[in-house]
Nucleic acid binder design. Sequence first.
DNA 1: CGATGGTTGTTCAGATTTGAACAACGACTC
DNA 2: GAGTCGTTGTTCAAATCTGAACAACCATCG
Lengths: 164, 164
Amino acid sequence: MFKFERQYTESVTDTRWLDATEMAAWRAFVSTSHLLERRIEEQLKAAAGLTHPQYEILVVLSESPGRQMRMTELARDVVVSKSALTYQINQLEKAGLVERATCPSDERGVLAVLTEKGAHCLARVAPGHVEVVRAFLIDRLSREELRAMTSAMRKTEEALRSSA
Amino acid sequence: MFKFERQYTESVTDTRWLDATEMAAWRAFVSTSHLLERRIEEQLKAAAGLTHPQYEILVVLSESPGRQMRMTELARDVVVSKSALTYQINQLEKAGLVERATCPSDERGVLAVLTEKGAHCLARVAPGHVEVVRAFLIDRLSREELRAMTSAMRKTEEALRSSA
DNA sequence: CGATGGTTGTTCAGATTTGAACAACGACTC
DNA sequence: GAGTCGTTGTTCAAATCTGAACAACCATCG
């Protein structure tokens, strides 16, 4: 009875450690996400001199109505800090892949707009990127694993986004 | 017949794009890993002034025989570059959590050794860290999801580690 | 209307990461 | 043993990320 209750009673001195299975899951997740991130970065850098965040910015913009988006929302979607986004948009602007526009409805607002050149760059780079994603992740998973992973990621994402 | 074969025929002009399900899986994975990383980092920084890589270094060392490990192997385990590890070990050494020792068997080698202070620091910080990992990931997944995710991550990790 | 409080994007300083270059050492061959 | 090739860890410059501070703007309530 005690054993059962302790599972749900967190205190300073009584930690619910991860068992071997849970630990293995967590370790695998962390290592793999770092390794994959590194590989993706490497591929994009070699193919187009882009970083992964930069590529993601292009993707999100390309799928956004009018190929444009407010800075804050873009930062949320791509999961970077506001200052990191400012920096990256500056870089992309120098490269001519993105432009800034003032927001009509909000004087403070800034719109990041994908340029023609940006769209072409994305179209040129995407195949190689997708190939890496397939080769190391997607194509290696069964339908069931893909489904379960997506479900798991969504639950966690939801929890993280809704809490602070 | 053509349709079937094209699935397995990659060329410059014919890309196997991700379908909606696959795209959702990939997007969820990327977003979630970044969000989780950010949250972990925040928690560790607040609780002990540690970064996630630093914490992982302490964990790996604590589980290693003799609480010590060669720099290169440590870098592989924690998934950071050699130079990043040098930097972090310097930081941890300043904080007194890790010491360097020369490797007996290899004159070039450097051993990173966990100090008593480092072990205590880890013991103090681990509960709060585990709590975050549980709250946002582990405890939200079914047994099946946990199993599938682990399997998926391992396949990808294996592929990434064995190819260059 | 005016004050208060929240939002927006940028700037800045500081910390961290990476890859390339490098010097020192090990292993193996002839 | 000397030579060759690979490994090891560090240093360095450059790029990037983050959080805090900030100025400008919006919204809302009295």
